[in-house]
């Protein structure tokens, strides 16, 4: 009777032990953590499995650990997860027709912005060049020319000593 009791107690302890994360294998734990960091917790959607302590997240981490022990690689584990929970479980969505815009969108926007910027700069450069050209050539009419001469003369007169004028 006592033996049976001790045995059952020992059994339950042994069972409890399998449920806790196996800390004795740091390499395995590091791989579990790395994979869990790229999987989304379905219950608390803005956390990764690695960050979450939700019940389901713990179950799924145990699942990842078990699959690694069984010799499955990261790609197989991710396939297994997406087969059950969809692409949403992946923090890095796969590139396919429905996610093309998601992946390419920022680069398309960047390219469009670059094209727009280049055109704006060129337009401005052309505008400044024509303005410079306008200032340089004989586009001044007679009235403007006279005003310019008068103003320049005034400044010259003010700047130079009177003795030199005579």
């Amino acid at each position: 009777m006592a033996v049976a009791l001790v045995t059952s107690l020992w059994m339950s302890l042994a069972l409890a032990d399998t449920a806790t994360p196996a800390a004795e294998d740091p390499v395995l734990e590091a791989r579990v953590a790395a994979i869990a960091a790229e999987l989304r917790c379905l219950v608390c959607q803005n956390q990764s499995l690695a960050d979450s302590h939700a019940d389901l997240a713990i179950d799924l981490k145990n699942q990842v650990r078990q699959m690694l022990r069984d010799g499955r690689d990261e790609a197989e584990i991710k396939d297994w997860m997406t087969a059950r929970y969809g692409d949403f479980v992946l923090y890095k969505p796969p590139v396919r027709r429905t996610t093309w815009l998601l992946w390419a969108g920022p680069f398309v926007l960047l390219a469009a912005g670059g094209v727009w910027l280049a055109r704006a700069v060129r337009r401005r450069r052309v505008l400044l060049a024509t303005q410079d050209a306008g200032r340089g050539d004989a586009a001044l009419d007679a009235v403007d020319a006279a005003r310019v001469a008068a103003l320049l003369g005034e400044t010259a007169g003010a700047a130079t000593p009177p003795s030199d004028v005579r």
Binding site: V43, D55, L56, D59, Q63, R84
Partner: peptide, 13 residues
């Protein structure tokens, strides 16, 4: 009880 089959069905809530 342990939720294993639930995971097969993608149960999350």
């Amino acid at each position: 009880r342990d939720g294993r089959v639930g995971i097969e069905y993608g149960v999350y809530g």
